[in-house]
Design a protein around this nucleic acid. Structure first.
Lengths: 154, 154
DNA sequence: CCGGGTAGTTCGCGGCACGAATTTGTTACG
DNA sequence: CGTAACAAATTCGTGCCGCGAACTACCCGG
């Protein structure tokens, strides 16, 4: 296991370093749309559906109080809004505004484009293999849906 | 391309979502050692060798001014130190302290362990394939060495 | 020796994340 | 009922992060 011949890279380092890369792409893409990474992440999550605050905390892995601030700032930017929960007057549904939905679409598409570019040198088969393996990592470890499939959009 | 049969996941979403996962692991691991993700990253980079500030900015993808603060805080924690650069009295070499080196080793090992766990259900061959593909992503896109190979440690 | 470039720091700002305490509303149960 | 336990969010205070602009100290070529 992990016999490292010169020039090869182990699975762990490959995961960590590619994470660093994708993260940078995400940040840069967000920056280009005038939002932060966190706000971009929030928009991408909300593309699927509105969520309550507590629920969002679970998906994004944040404390409740962190979320209040994030939603505050994103709301101030006019991208999301708090709607009253019909069934529970304590609760709130966070949803994209029209502007937020538009920006989410653009940001999402641009981010997809850039991430796809990271595998520009891959054959279709290689890309599929990578997708299948990483897909298992994701499902085995129950990663919440912080990023939709392209065909789930709209 | 990217015909999505039910249950399958595309390469882009797989990359983004696994990034989210690895990132969370990294943050949690750092937290356990009483440091932030950024300080952990700094320690891991410095495990290889000391760096100048500007150089570090390149590796970590941060502005000079961001680095001053990060090194300040990490230095205050006794984990790194600024040493004068012998050849240039403006410059500085940031290096691990003894305590920093010890903590870096532990943090690095624990992070490796946790990241490895993410592929717990994989066969050795699958893990190798994943490593090879992600390794290409990393080298094709010139990711700096923000995380060593296990066999490069020490 | 002087002028242009470089290494780092300082400063001010806003975003981010957290825990503890608080407010308001829900729900269960006696 | 009514009250006690619980749940959804917010508030508050703190510290970390990241940035750009301005600045200091130093290097180096002419």
């Amino acid at each position: 296991m992990s016999e490292n011949v010169a020039g090869e890279i182990g699975a762990v380092a490959a995961l960590v370093r590619s994470t660093f890369l994708v993260n940078a792409v995400y940040v840069e893409s967000a920056r280009e749309y005038g939002i932060t990474q966190q706000q971009g992440q929030l928009l991408c999550v909300l593309m699927a559906q509105p969520y309550g605050m507590t629920e969002l905390g679970g998906v994004l892995g944040l404390a409740k109080s962190s979320l209040t601030g994030l939603v505050d700032r994103t709301e101030r930017n006019g991208l999301v809004e708090r709607r009253p929960d019909p069934g529970d007057s304590r609760a709130v549904r966070v949803a994209l505004t029209r502007r937020g939905a538009r920006l989410a679409d653009e940001f999402y598409a641009e981010t997809c484009r850039r991430v796809e570019e990271l595998t520009a040198g891959f054959t279709a088969a290689e890309r599929d293999t990578l997708a299948a393996l990483l897909g298992r990592v994701v499902t085995d470890n129950q990663v919440p849906t912080v990023f939709l499939e392209p065909d789930q959009v709209r």
